[in-house]
Amino acid sequence: MNTPIETTTGYQSETANQFEAELTWAGKQPLMPGRQYRINLACREILATVTAIKYRIDVLTGAHLAARTLNINETGKVNLYTSEPLIFNRQSNKSDLKFVLTDGQTGEKVGAGTIDFVLRRATNIQWQNLAIDKNARSVQKQQAPKCIWFTGLSGSGKSTIANLLEKHLHQESKHTYLLDGDNIRHGLCRDLGFTEADRVENIRRVSEVARLMVDAGLIVLVSFISPFRSERRMARELFTVGEFVEIFIDTSLSECERRDVKGLYAKARSGKLKNFTGIDSPYEPPVSPEIHIQTTSLSPQAAVEKILKQL
């Protein structure tokens, strides 16, 4: 389905991938800015992200209310980003600009709305082609760049195994970088908390950084809880086939609590630490990761050896 938005004959159209829209939410789970959905617009279906909620509209008074999310049956003004440019015409009929959002995993309809106008930033920014590309950087480093993504509960052993793997790769003269969840929150993501919306944004930022590092020809190791399948899928889609390797560090909740070297589970159980993954915030395990590590039967060093054999 590659048909663009139909435009009215005689009117000048413009190509853009960022829009303001009015959106009514229909999903059982709240709208999360930064999360990827699928948009169906004028017989074309592509990926779309709500990048910001400008305000929620009070259905009784029409008042504009501050909002960080939209719940079922709520309507708001939002900024939309589409993965591919669309042809837009200000003179189009409203019916031509209506869209539907669906969940990328389940196909469930989660929202519907109407495009209002193109955001100026969409037409002001153009992709700059550069002389040196990923292939040239990879040849120089004599390696195939990859994103090796570790996911698992807090205390599962992600950072320990990722650190050992990077050490081994470094000894083999590979060019690497390790992005660790705790370390990133000291800088790039220090403004984010641990609500579901903040976790979504946390992974979006890290995914983009990892993509840039792979483009630089590096083997980048990402060690994040990354609890939601939708965000891990979004990260995967930033890379070409074979560049993204998902490693599930599978450790039971009881074993993670037993280790609890940071004392976080104890705080979460006592109610002192809210939105903690595995306690009062969900963890969605990978369905088909490239590599599955069960730490109760493998030591960290044995886990690294298994990873190296499968990479």
Rank of each mutant, 00 (worst) to 15 (best):
Y265F: 05
L41W: 07
A302R: 11
H64D: 09
L130S: 08
S95Q: 04
V304F: 10
F99V: 03
E172R: 11
V206C: 05
P289Y: 01
I148H: 00
T151W: 01
N202D: 08
A67K: 02
G34Q: 07
T123K: 06
A210G: 09
I115L: 15
T75Q: 05
E237H: 09
E201K: 15
S173W: 10
D103P: 02
S297T: 13
W127G: 05
R44V: 01
R90Q: 14
T75K: 09
Q143E: 12
I72H: 10
G104I: 14
R190E: 14
A162P: 00
T277W: 11
K309N: 12
V287D: 06
M32H: 14
A26C: 06
T69N: 11
A67I: 02
F117N: 09
L23Y: 06
T102S: 12
V287Q: 10
K28L: 14
G193P: 05
P286F: 01
S223P: 11
R38D: 14
T8I: 13
V214F: 05
A48N: 05
Y55C: 08
T295D: 03
A302Q: 15
G113N: 06
G155C: 04
Q143H: 13
L119R: 13
S281V: 04
V220C: 09
R233Q: 15
E6Y: 00
Q126P: 00
T151K: 01
K109T: 15
A144D: 12
R185W: 10
R185E: 07
S154C: 12
A42M: 13
E108N: 13
N183C: 05
L86Y: 13
L188F: 08
L221K: 02
A303N: 06
I115R: 06
A235E: 07
T296C: 08
K272Q: 15
T176H: 06
L212F: 12
P300K: 04
V241G: 07
T7S: 14
T295V: 04
T114V: 14
A144T: 15
T3R: 10
I203W: 05
Y283P: 02
A16I: 02
K306A: 05
G34F: 08
F19V: 02
K167A: 15
E45Q: 14
A21C: 10
V304T: 08
E108S: 12
Q143D: 10
R205D: 02
R204T: 08
I46R: 10
T176L: 07
E305K: 12
E305P: 00
L97N: 03
R259I: 10
Y177I: 12
I115G: 05
Q143W: 13
G27M: 08
R232C: 03
W25N: 04
Y81S: 13
Q105D: 15
T277P: 04
A122G: 14
L65Q: 10
R68G: 13
K77T: 12
T114E: 14
E20N: 11
R44A: 09
G62S: 06
P227R: 06
E257R: 08
G111F: 00
N71I: 13
T69S: 13
S154K: 05
E243H: 06
D198W: 01
L80Y: 02
I115H: 04
K167Q: 15
D180P: 02
A16P: 01
W25F: 09
T296Y: 11
R35W: 09
G271R: 02
G10W: 10
W25T: 06
D180W: 01
P289Q: 01
Q36D: 11
A131M: 05
D182M: 08
A52H: 11
L153Q: 02
H64F: 11
L273I: 03
A67D: 06
R233H: 15
A210F: 00
D58W: 01
